[in-house]
Design a protein around this nucleic acid. Structure first.
Length: 261
DNA sequence: ATGACGGAAGTTTTCCGA
């Protein structure tokens, strides 16, 4: 079983790349972020022809998330229950699992707020959103021992995830306030599946379009797959796939792929 | 210090992302 997450920065623009990627990487589940389209524009037919069911939750211009799955998912939730949100940022569903437990894997795909800069309204919204997410995930964990929380977190764990930790100290994606919320998710009983394995130095999932960020390995690791211990015990690999970042007109993010036994 | 690049809206320039 393989699960992946990818911020595509406009599904309209990136659809051909997503379809190519799925052909080369026939994962079981793919969470997409930044669809940047209303629901009526979602390319459900092309995705069905590629062999995937889909749940999507979009809006005009910004945000928007989807969950693609080879097997239909159940118990779909869009956005954080009880947290009033103007923006389409979360889609969750339960994926059938082949193990002996007979329970599915609860998968939450999320596009965390960017936050712009500390001290701004957008940063305050990010903080409130992170608290809302955590309260909800705490409840989800009670019901689902097998849970995967993946997406574009817009937060780095530590200096290892940052190409220029000195220059970016206390900057957005690297502040102590944001990292506190990330650690609070870990404290609920989740693990960063990427760090379960030895990884290359300068492992990033996003590179700025400007200034040859990708070519110069100037990036951030802000796309994460957090998993419960039951899932972690089955993990055999977690990798960032830089191949699509080398496409013409790439997304600024690369997919992250988790493989389970 | 600023803006670089890329996408959307939509029309000429602005907002936003990270």
């Amino acid at each position: 079983m393989q699960l992946a997450t990818w911020n595509v920065n406009s599904l309209s623009v990136r659809l051909p790349q997503v379809l190519d990627w799925l052909q080369a990487n026939p994962v079981d589940v793919l969470a997409l972020q930044e669809l940047k389209m209303t629901d009526d524009k979602f390319p459900a037919q092309a995705i069905a022809e590629a062999g995937y069911t889909a749940q999507w939750f979009g809006q005009k211009t910004y945000n928007g998330v989807a969950l693609l799955s080879r097997q239909p998912v159940t118990d779909v939730v869009k956005n954080i229950p009880g947290f009033g949100d103007e923006m389409a940022r979360v889609v969750a569903g339960t994926v059938p699992d082949g193990d002996a437990s007979n329970a599915g894997i609860r998968v939450i795909g999320a596009y965390f707020p960017n936050g712009q800069a500390p001290g701004t309204d957008k940063f305050e919204y990010k903080m409130a959103w992170l608290k809302g997410l955590r309260d909800w995930v705490r409840d989800e964990l009670k019901a689902h021992p097998k849970l995967v929380l993946m997406g574009d977190y817009n937060i780095t764990f530590d200096d290892q995830d940052v190409w220029d930790p000195v220059g970016m100290r206390d900057q957005i994606h690297c502040t102590e306030e944001e990292r506190y919320h990330l650690r609070a998710l870990i404290a609920l009983g989740l693990q960063d599946s990427f760090r379960l394995f030895d990884q290359p130095a300068k492992s990033y999932s996003w590179w700025d379009y400007r200034d040859f960020g990708f070519r110069r390995s100037r990036g951030l690791r802000i796309d994460h797959i957090l998993v419960t211990p039951t899932v972690a015990a089955r993990a055999t690999a977690c990798v960032i796939d830089k191949v699509p970042r080398k496409n013409e007109r790439p997304s600024d993010h690369a997919p992250v792929v988790l493989t389970l036994d």
